[in-house]
Nucleic acid binder design. Structure first.
Length: 879
DNA sequence: GCTACTCGGGG
DNA sequence: GTGTACGAGTAGC
């Protein structure tokens, strides 16, 4: 028999642990395999511990002396350790603690039993397993089950056919002013979406009301509804249970409501109930034998793609070009209690949410990457949704088993504290970021070159690894790192990290080659695989500096960044000494070079030439690559720039505006600001016309003054995070919330609401002049154009324009106007004084503020200028 | 500019 | 479950 491993756990048969593997066969049948011949064990180093005490412990079934390497620092020979076998996994923590108290040092003692098993059998998550066994008749699984005698991993690339079920609940709040309360507020609806179809239906909505129609099933009570929910899941038997934010909301809520009605939340694939665990702010729900997929959590943690907001509506709009049905949660009670029409709307609203959730997962191939991460790291699919460190550690565990290493325990509270304190003295130094040549660059193409996987290459080139660093001076061939640490040469021993990286990188190379001839489905999977490999290779450096890592080694982390800094310096020098280009900027692993080449193809040639030249002169695996061209480039500060990018594509070029670190969209800006910023940047980069950019801003200012901007574009949205009374300061949205509450107590905003407001004209304090846009329109209130110009529009626009030499007063039209020639002239040596950050020059007499010192040294009105910092006036400026 | 704290999603 | 868990953005200094 063969199956693909989806989930695993264990149960006790008397005192005997039985491993339980859940999976899917090649025919798409759910299956469960039991293995009862595996014993828990861990290692200790004797230290000051007493072996006699050890032998007296009755839970220990065997003690064996073994030789193992400990991967903290280079050791020539393995050490003598005691391998302790235990009757029951549950006894391990207690025993371990006792032994540690007794002076032993523990290893491999906090590895979950299922992973211990998988590692020892060389099986990773989503692997295919072939086994011999006999059919089992047991209550310990609800799917076809077997007792396994022999098993092994087999090579097979395809994935089994899986069943997906997405769900969404709707609750009815008893009190609209309070947050949802699972003790009081019932679940009135649950929608389910299936893939493939369930009984020829794509979806189903269960409703706690006696209504029924196609795709709608009514019930007399919440209790009956919940019981049916469990039945449908059991009946359909999905592998994946999908819900948007279901880990934090839907599932815990369902569990609470089921508990209230005395319903066992048993909708996994065995006798074990569904449960949720809380840690810190997060919750995670476990459905034994199935995989809980929460698209919200997956998207939120995705390091490659960022969204402005992560609510289902925004995400569905961005990814599926589809929106939720428009129902405010405050109208839910009315829809529920009103007529059939409202109820239908509510039902379809609910249905749509689970449809969107399942479509996100399936149409966007959201799980592809995690299937591959699972196969590479060894984690069960469910666990790949978590952090990077567990991926690294599980992969290491597999490698350690092969190479005779043991795994140190997770750091204790005390150890964490120690590390934090140590960190204050011996900080983790980061990468080099060169001070950029600020401003607009349009004279020639800007070449961007960067190092192909810099940190992995460094680790491989210099054999940097936790198990190759010399903890004390030793007489072995070793190389000194820029930090002064020594790492043994590869000939002595290839480090575990470099060797794993070698495998990951060469596997990625193979996959990328295969991708070239692949298409459609195959190509998609290969792409997911190569991304997962890249993800994994990039995790190793960060892991060594991650404070909770089992193999936390700050010296190793520091060595890596030190090599990176040295390498970047060397690269800069090599380029400056040998090519007629100017290094405008460099950050970590990339350099930005200004050329005088106008032609894209020629620029590309030059870029490749420089990349090759540098790569040839750098050691080992370090390789500089030509990445892209910017025809024009605007850099404001370190990490903040925009460029008109051209990327080679086939025979031609594709262009786009690329922005890094320059935010055009922020929650606390109205859309007018975002739009204007984008336009301004586009004009500057594509047309190189700063005057046009300025006049664009002036046009916006004018239309603000003339009341021509629609209120939607001026609405600022802020959330209410606590009760209105508990706000101490004056905040516009809070004052508005109070106003609304006074006008119409039934609409009073509550915690969690987001308030949209505009600022209207008047003599009151700013925060008192916030108004509901609808109310403002109905009562024909005028907006405060000055507020929008000076407080909203200007700060971000000014940051951009000041980088191209335009001051605020110039922008306002009351200062000297910079001519095109002047703006573009390369070296206007007579630079007027320019202040940093939020500083400005303010006239003592008329209060006019200047970003740059006027040439006269005084204000237009003749008044003295003062330096203002954060709005506080400081020293008088000498004329 | 830097640090501390808050909040996210869900109804 | 042989365990553990964040990070971006904003307010406050």
């Amino acid at each position: 028999m063969r199956f693909q491993l989806l989930d695993a756990d264990y149960f006790l048969n008397g005192a005997k642990p039985v491993i339980r593997l859940f999976g899917k066969t090649e025919n798409g049948n759910a299956i469960c395999a039991f293995y009862d011949k595996f014993q828990p064990y861990f290692y200790v180093k004797q230290g000051k511990g007493s072996v006699a005490a050890l032998k007296a412990m009755k839970e220990i079934t065997n003690i064996e002396e073994v030789k193992r390497f400990i991967p903290l620092g280079y050791k020539k020979e393995p050490e003598s350790l005691l391998m302790i076998t235990v009757d029951n996994p549950q006894n391990v923590p207690k025993l371990r603690d006792e032994l540690v108290q007794n002076g032993f040092e523990d290893f491999d003692s906090d590895i979950m039993f299922k992973y211990r098993f998988m590692v020892d059998f060389g099986v990773k998550g989503m692997d295919w397993i072939e086994f011999e066994g006999t059919k089992a008749f047991t209550k310990m699984a609800k799917v076809t089950s077997y007792h396994v005698n022999k098993m092994k991993k087999i090579e097979k690339n395809e994935n089994a056919d899986l069943k997906f079920l997405a769900f969404d609940i709707e609750c009815l709040p008893a009190d609209l002013k309070r947050p949802m309360d699972s003790k009081k507020d019932p679940i009135v609806m649950v929608s389910l979406s299936f893939s493939p179809d369930h009984k020829n239906q794509k979806s189903l909505v269960l409703v706690a009301k006696p209504v029924s129609s196609s795709g709608v099933q009514g019930f007399r009570s919440e209790k009956e509804l919940l019981e049916e929910f469990i039945k449908v899941i059991e009946n359909y038997d999905p592998d994946m249970l999908i819900g948007y934010n279901c880990n934090n909301f839907d599932l815990p809520y369902l569990l609470d409501r089921m508990r209230k009605h005395g319903i066992q939340p048993n909708f996994g694939r065995c006798e074990k109930n569904v449960f949720s665990k809380t840690f810190g702010m997060m919750q995670e729900c476990i459905v034994p034998g199935r995989i809980v997929v929460d698209p919200y959590q997956i998207l939120k943690r995705d390091p490659w793609v960022k969204f402005h907001r992560y609510n289902l509506n925004t995400i569905a709009k961005e990814l599926l070009n589809e929106e939720k049905i428009d129902v405010e949660h405050t109208e839910m009670p009315d829809l529920w209690n009103g007529g059939r029409e409202g109820l239908n709307k509510f039902i379809e609203y609910c249905r749509k949410d689970s449809e969107l959730a399942i479509r996100l997962v399936l149409e966007k191939g959201m799980l592809d990457r995690f299937f591959e991460l699972s196969k590479i790291s060894g984690l069960l699919l469910q666990d790949t949704f978590g952090g990077q460190s567990s991926r690294v550690e599980t992969m290491l565990l597999h490698e350690f088993r092969k190479k005779n290493f043991v795994m140190p325990s997770r750091p204790s509270k005390e150890e964490l504290l120690k590390r934090t304190r140590e960190r204050e003295k011996k900080e983790l130094k980061g990468a080099t970021v060169l001070e950029p040549k600020k401003g607009l660059h349009t004279e020639g193409c800007i070449l961007v070159l960067d190092f192909r996987s810099l940190y992995p290459s460094i680790m491989r080139t210099y054999n940097v690894s936790p198990d190759t660093v010399l903890l004390k001076k030793e007489n072995v061939p070793a190389t000194k790192s820029p930090t002064g640490a020594y790492f043994v040469n590869q000939a002595v021993r290839e480090g575990i990290f470099p060797s794993l990286l070698k495998e990951l990188i060469s596997a990625r190379g193979r996959i990328k080659k295969m991708m070239k001839s692949a298409k459609d489905e195959e190509k998609r999977i290969l792409n997911a695989k190569q991304l997962a490999l890249k993800d994994m290779s990039n995790s190793f450096y960060g892991y060594t500096g991650y404070i909770r890592a089992r193999l936390y080694m700050i010296d190793v982390a520091n060595t890596i960044t030190a090599h990176g800094r040295k390498n970047l310096e060397k690269t800069k020098k090599l380029i400056e000494d040998n090519f007629a280009v100017e290094v405008l900027y460099a950050d970590t692993d990339s350099v930005f070079l200004k050329t005088n080449i106008k032609d894209l193809d020629e620029a590309k040639k030059e870029g490749s030439k420089i990349a090759k030249f540098v790569s040839d002169k750098l050691p080992g695996y370090l390789e500089l690559e030509f990445e892209k061209i910017y025809k024009t480039f605007l850099i404001l500060t370190k990490k903040r720039y925009a460029g008109w990018e051209f990327e080679p594509s086939g025979d031609g070029w594709v262009d786009k505006i690329e922005m890094k670190g320059i935010e055009t969209i922020r929650r606390d800006w109205c859309t007018l600001v975002s739009e204007t910023m984008e336009e301004v940047i586009k004009i500057i980069l594509k047309e190189g016309d700063i005057q046009k950019a300025i006049s664009r801003v002036r046009t916006v200012m004018t239309s603000l003054k003339n009341n021509e901007v629609p209120l939607e574009k001026l609405t600022i949205i802020k959330g209410i995070t606590k009760s209105l009374e508990s706000y101490e300061g004056m905040l516009p949205h809070i004052e508005l919330a109070k106003k609304i509450a006074k006008r119409n107590p039934s609409e009073a905003p509550v915690v969690g609401d987001r308030i949209g407001f505009v600022i209207i004209r008047g003599n009151l304090l700013l925060s008192k002049r916030s108004e509901d846009p609808r109310y403002a329109r109905e009562h024909n209130l005028q907006i405060d154009s000055d507020y929008y110009i000076y407080s909203q529009l200007f700060p971000p626009i000014e940051r951009i324009l000041s980088a191209v030499g335009i001051s605020k007063s110039e922008l306002l039209g009351n200062g000297r106007q910079a001519s095109m020639k002047e703006v573009f002239s390369k070296n206007s040596k007579k630079k007027p004084a320019v202040l940093k950050g939020w500083e400005s020059f303010v006239c003592k007499r008329c209060n006019k503020s200047y970003r740059r010192m006027p040439l006269s040294g005084a204000c237009e009105c003749g008044g003295d200028l003062m330096i203002s910092y954060h709005g506080t006036l400081g020293n008088k400026v000498k004329r």
